Amino acid sequence: MPRPLDGPRLAPASGTARSLVVFVHGYGANGDDLIALGQMWQAALPDTVFVSPHAPEECAANPFGGRQWFPLTLRDEQELVDGLAQAGPDLDAFLDAELERHGLGPEALALVGFSQGTMMALHVGLRRAGGLAALVGYSGVLANAAALAGEIAARPPVLLVHGAQDELIPAQALAHTRDALQRVDVPVEAHLREGLGHGIDEEGLRLGAGFLARHLAGAG
């Protein structure tokens, strides 16, 4: 049984919901961390509902409101595989519920992840039977890339943005993820940002807004 998720929402600036962007936050953060991106993107996406669910688990690394999609204690491949398998259905069910809430189809859905949230967005988005319109991943990595060929169910266009000076997830993760997606025929656009650590800069925000505006049905 999927665990219920909820978090802050931002109504479309136009008053009419024609597309849905779901933010998937990083380890130790919560849904409040990314919903501000929706405010920054409203001009480019006026007909878009933005929602940023809190991950289902408390995070011991940040006991003051921090959440996690799954633990990152060992930080090895098996921990990622097990964690994604457990948390994936939670996010997947949430996406179905949000689309139903707004009367939208998969062509109106985009996922935007950061760090652990990018792992989640790639894992869930590429396996959704109904598909989705677009996926944006900041400062993340595709986990268990070897399994993707046998499990992929959707090939949305993907934008990857990563800091060249990322101190948590090395910049090499960008090429690893890009190459793995290309091997399974997922259209991918990758940008390495010089001088950027583990975060999102102004150019990354601009790239994300433009990418979503191009690919989301009814984005405005």
Rank of each mutant, 00 (worst) to 15 (best):
V21Q: 01
H54N: 15
A190Y: 06
I152N: 03
R3W: 09
D82P: 06
I35V: 09
A121H: 05
A190D: 06
A87Q: 03
G220E: 04
D92F: 03
T177V: 04
L20I: 01
Q165C: 12
A147D: 13
A143P: 00
G220Y: 02
D96N: 12
G88P: 05
F50C: 03
L192E: 10
V112L: 14
R155H: 14
L168S: 12
I200E: 01
R3F: 07
Q78G: 08
L126C: 04
P170H: 00
H123A: 09
L84T: 09
Q172F: 11
A11Q: 12
H176E: 15
P156R: 03
E57H: 15
F64T: 14
A29L: 10
L216G: 08
G199P: 01
A87W: 01
D166P: 00
Q42N: 03
L111N: 04
E202R: 15
D201H: 03
Q39A: 13
E79R: 12
L168Y: 12
A171M: 08
A209G: 14
E167W: 00
A55P: 06
A60N: 11
R183V: 11
L5G: 02
G150S: 11
N30P: 00
P71R: 13
E79D: 13
G137K: 05
L84N: 07
R75N: 14
R183S: 14
V22H: 03
E167H: 08
G195H: 08
D76G: 11
G137Y: 01
G66H: 04
A11E: 14
L168D: 12
R75V: 14
A133K: 03
R178V: 09
Q39W: 10
L111C: 00
V188M: 02
A13S: 10
C59A: 15
G15Y: 05
A180E: 09
L192V: 05
H176I: 10
I152D: 05
R18A: 13
S19W: 00
V161E: 09
P156G: 04
V22E: 02
A55G: 11
P63L: 12
A164Y: 04
V136F: 02
T73E: 15
D76T: 11
V24R: 04
P156Y: 05
R178G: 11
A133E: 08
A110C: 11
G105K: 10
A175L: 08
V124N: 04
V51W: 00
L109C: 05
V184P: 00
F94G: 03
A87G: 01
S139M: 08
V124R: 05
F64Y: 15
Q42A: 13
F50K: 01
P8L: 04
P89W: 05
G150A: 15
